[in-house]
């Protein structure tokens, strides 16, 4: 089996959280000889979401998998979206050199909830061509109302001026009356 003959699927699911969802999904993948390359799973507001990148050895195995998924959907456990991953969508291999093309930062934003917080900050980051790699955002109970906590992990291109980026984000925080912290998360390569 050569790597080029493998067929990769992106599988996204969401359903009401309950015990056994991961097991059902992994059973369907395993019974079709699928191999999970990458996955992320989390609970969001009572829903459980899973995203998998899975490779299968043949179209027959994929059909077997899809049959199992149809049964899961008929049981009403969760909704599943499946699409093939084309070769040009293959993820970059992990950085194997110490010379990175970007620096990792964590932006944390918190304050009383209002519409447009994530939009405002994601737009500001996009203006610097910053690539968001992970986001955690939640509404929590605060001192005098609902607080929105937004944490963004991101890859910042080397040509972005840190002081300028920090100033722009802090200005945005002041405009929206939000607590804004930006700090480097770069690992030291020894």
């Amino acid at each position: 089996m050569t790597p080029s003959s493998l067929i990769k699927l992106v599988i996204s699911t969401v359903g009401k959280d309950r015990p056994g969802l991961v097991a059902r999904m992994c059973e369907a993948i395993s019974n079709a000889n699928g191999n999970i390359d990458d996955s992320t799973m989390t609970r969001l507001g009572g829903q459980f979401s899973m995203i998998y990148i899975v490779h299968f050895e043949s179209p027959d195995h994929i059909e077997l998998f899809k049959t199992a998924i149809r049964q899961i959907e008929e049981e009403g456990l969760f909704h599943v979206d499946i699409r093939p991953l084309s070769p040009d969508e293959e993820p970059d291999l992990p950085e194997t050199t110490t010379r990175s093309k970007s620096r990792k930062y964590l932006l944390s934003v918190g304050g009383y909830d209002r519409t447009g917080i994530t939009y405002a900050f994601s737009k500001a980051l996009a203006a610097f061509d910053i690539n968001i790699t992970d986001v955690h955002a939640h509404r929590i109970n605060g001192e005098d109302g609902i607080v929105y906590m937004l944490a963004i992990e991101m890859d910042v291109p080397l040509n972005v001026d840190e002081a300028e980026m920090k100033a722009d984000l802090e200005t945005l925080g002041k405009e929206l009356n939000l607590d804004v912290r930006l700090r480097s998360m770069d690992a030291i390569i020894l």
Binding site: L106, S108, I152, R181
Partner: peptide, 16 residues
């Protein structure tokens, strides 16, 4: 606390 974490994925946990 949020100023001390090193990874969003592994260090910042919402109580369930």
């Amino acid at each position: 606390m949020m100023d001390r974490i090193e990874s969003l994925k592994t260090d910042w946990l919402r109580r369930q």
